[in-house]
Write a protein that binds this DNA or RNA. Sequence first.
DNA 1: AAGGGCGACTCAGAAAATTAGTG
DNA 2: TCACTAATTTTCTGAGTCGCCCT
Length: 658
Amino acid sequence: MSDSSDDLPLSRLNHQTVVRNRAEGVVQISDKGKGTRKKMRRASCHDSGSDGEISAMKRKKMKSAGNLRSGHNESAGNKKVIKPKELMRVQRVEQGIAAFEWWNSPDPPEGKAWQTLEHCGMTFEPQYKPHGVAVLYDGVPISLTPYQEELATFYAAMPEDGPQLNVSGGQREIFQRNFWDDWHKVLGKSHAIKSFDKCDFSDISKHLDRLKFVKRAASDAEKVVARELRDDCQLRSGYAILDDHLEKVGNFRMEPPSLFRGRGKHPKTGVVKLRVEPDQVSINCGASRPPPICLELGRSWGEIKHDDTVTWLSTWHENVMQSNKYVMLAANSSLKGKSDFKKFQKAMQLKGCIERVRHDYHKNLKSKDRHLKQQATTMWLIDTLALRVGGEKSEEEADTVGCCSLRVEHFTFHKTGKDVDLEFLGKDSILFKQSIDFAGFDEHGQQAYDNIREMCRSKKKNEQVFELIEPTSLNAHLSSIMPGLTAKVFRTYNASETLQNQLPDAEHVIEMRSIGDKLIAYNEANRIVAILCNHQRTVSAAAATGLEAQAEKLEQTQEQKIAATAAYEAATIKKREANKSKQAEAHRFSKLPDEKDVSRRIDIWTEKIKKLEIDLRNKEENKEVSLGTSKANYLDPRISVAWCKRCDVPIEKLFSRP
DNA sequence: AAGGGCGACTCAGAAAATTAGTG
DNA sequence: TCACTAATTTTCTGAGTCGCCCT
């Protein structure tokens, strides 16, 4: 922290505070950053929900920005100076934003989301510029109008080995048919191109690959320019002023036109998602503030509204799913932070009455009333397996299910034993596949099993198991037990509760030597939660080969250790021999491999191997599990922060950035 | 007056971008 | 130290949930 910049008082203040906190490992306050920040220190071992702990929950996100870089400033090479300065602009603003303590600021009046709101609307991509590369039809190049070419280019950009085209099960055909339907309309009836099968887009694909290559090969100077342009855009349009403080906007760039990439077997995948113009966008801003200026030359916004009961800044209608899309504040904004906090408060409230809730559905598992019995059984599944509630879906969407929409075909009962296979596609068409030992969960599992078995009997494969239960009625019932309780709260509650239970005790963790070992312990708990929530990721080809490479490296290291061990033995022998003749010719053996040296090297190998083994095991276990989702959405940060404090782990090791 | 539909919000994994690690 | 790669973080936008309004 030796640089002495004098032009940025705000960013410097934060910078120092943050760096200092890092250095001390514990949250401490530097004299300069004082003010009300002291509350942050209070977040502590018990999990009560005081304001001080929200601050901790927020603070974990204030990682040291602007690390490094200061060194460059001192050497006076003119090009080198510009880069760090320019890069800092966005960071400077965001540190300023981070200094705002939203957890100490008053809430807006009941029913209102804000009192004043001012922002810059959205930004738009430039209109399509034709490249002139032809599509081959039956081997013959066909010239296209710019719009026809634009659509062809969308298709050419779809990777052959990507999830849209390289999937068995008919997705590829749906994608191509939907694209062709739309493209064909644009080409017109009398167009030379009459069938999709004879089209060859590969010249355009190659052209796109070339562009990508050029982009990747850009010089440092070119990259700096690109970065500056992006920063300019971010600074011009990426922030809003909500109730008189600055907030980061999440997605202020209009989605570019493309082909709809529905997940799984989506009936609309491949449909053209149209370009959206400024006049199709509605703006929501405070009436007392100037509305945003549309920066597109000669264009204007479709509508300007002043609705202070909602949080969106801009909205537009999307043509493929006929849904509304919104521009909202970023995930780390005060608005989202407060809402996140409420979510975890609700989960903690559920913790307080979970006995009562469980007793309610346990009792009803045996009810004579069919509706009550089904309701209780769905509740058992939601609470035990962390299933989503599963609302009804239209024909225009992929066929995925949740608890209420489970069908007979998703269960497989075996003649022997109590295990049941449950297999279905859930949200995002992610496979849920588990063999479930109902009785193994709790004393009511057996009853749940009997119920499901009975509810499946005399039904067709494609019929719903819980045909009487709908999310609305289930939620209404839950709300009658605890105000505001809905099915999704159980996922939050069970995830956070699981984390709490899985995190090893502080006494145990504190003995671990390295932070790395402690982090592994945390990730272990995180993984169990991710598995509970069925958060998956597909193993990319690159990840798979990376894993192989690492296994190989481990093997190599082991061999090296063996070699080192041999050398050690050799050295010992030599030394012994040397000692014998030492008196006579001591000086000649001065360069003999030192026994201690070799022994130290063996220790290093051993360490290395141990680290590699842990690394590899960790990666192998994590390759199909996505830890990020649960960490970002389900784990109460107060639990993580408290654990970090008890175990002497710096919180920024767990949470990144702003 | 209830239930269906839709508006608004959270949650989700893939892909792109950035940063860290390594030889 | 530099260039390449691997790991991590951010961005992107599709897919859910849920409350409320309207018929």
